[in-house]
Design a protein around this nucleic acid. Structure first.
Lengths: 169, 169
DNA sequence: TATTGTTATACTCTATAACTATA
DNA sequence: TATAGTTATAGAGTATAACAATA
């Protein structure tokens, strides 16, 4: 019953290392720490531009398409509506976004990015992208491509399940 | 991190669409939510066997090689030494691990997995692995391999940075 | 004095509930 | 009554500090 794991048949970092196999760690055991590391790696860049991660997410999402309500924005970035209020306060105070009541329904706040907000967002995005490319450059081209494609495909699944039964994953 | 993956543009098997490109979301924006989703997907399996994620991590690490101190175990699973105490208490109370004072240095507690602990761990690991294979089966073979290889390579880097040099202001 | 494990405390992040102003 | 936004409160998770036992 006790399952034994072979070690020593391939070295980490070896080009011939198979991704899959009976001895690979759980996906979550690799993905979660990697996510933490990537987020931590973004912090210096964000801090250099005076942005928090949430502020950056707000700036990224705001001008893809005009968002009418704060609740919709919060939902789009998977946050609670109460989470982003302080973020919006700060961004507005620094003239990176604008927030005005909708004349047709004065309960609603219309959100928009300012020119300054766009330039900050672009600077941060470019710096992050540049660093990521440098990071990915350490991978063999085929792996890099597969990694990104697999990542995009998996992260696009809103709710994934590991259970065989009811979910059609 | 941020940004929302565009669902329709990345079809499995479409090899004309690169994973990379100017429009791809930040890595963290994909990796972090994926990690959360994977962890959430593991919960039902863990719960079915009465384990928390931390308890499972403890069981996974304990018999790879004998670990002498609790602090070393905590470090191995990237946790604070105070975090795992309640976990060890519970595992010990359920006879899934054993914890005895080292005769040669009575400050340290020697940790070991019991037979019951191994069988629970194996059951959970097999169930998780099975679910993951089902998940990965949705990817083209080349992407699946590249994804896993890239993931292993990146997650093996203890400290990854996005900055070109050490400078930061 | 230093170290292992433990307990107690404080801090961070997040979600929930309660309030306002509009409709 | 219902909804958008805001504020206040409480909960989970985590790290830090203080403590007891042993070296």
């Amino acid at each position: 019953m006790a399952e034994h794991v072979d070690h020593g048949d391939s070295l980490p970092g070896d080009d011939t290392l198979p991704g899959d196999g009976p001895d690979r760690p759980d996906l979550a055991a690799m993905v979660v720490p990697l996510g933490r590391a990537l987020m931590a790696a973004e912090q210096p860049i964000l801090a250099a531009h005076g942005l928090t991660m949430w502020a950056y997410m707000v700036l990224l999402h705001l001008d893809e398409e005009p968002i009418r309500t704060q609740a919709a924005l919060a939902k789009a970035i998977q946050a609670d509506k109460t989470r982003i209020i302080a973020v919006l306060d700060d961004l507005e105070a620094r003239d990176l976004i604008r927030r005005r009541p909708d004349p047709t329904d004065r309960r609603v706040r219309l959100l928009s990015v300012t020119g300054g907000g766009r330039s900050v967002r672009d600077a941060v995005r470019d710096a992050i992208r540049e660093g990521e490319e440098r990071l990915l450059a350490g991978l063999p081209a085929a792996d890099r491509e597969g990694f990104l494609r697999g990542l995009r495909a998996l992260s696009a699944r809103p709710e994934l399940t590991l259970l065989p039964k009811s979910g059609l994953d």
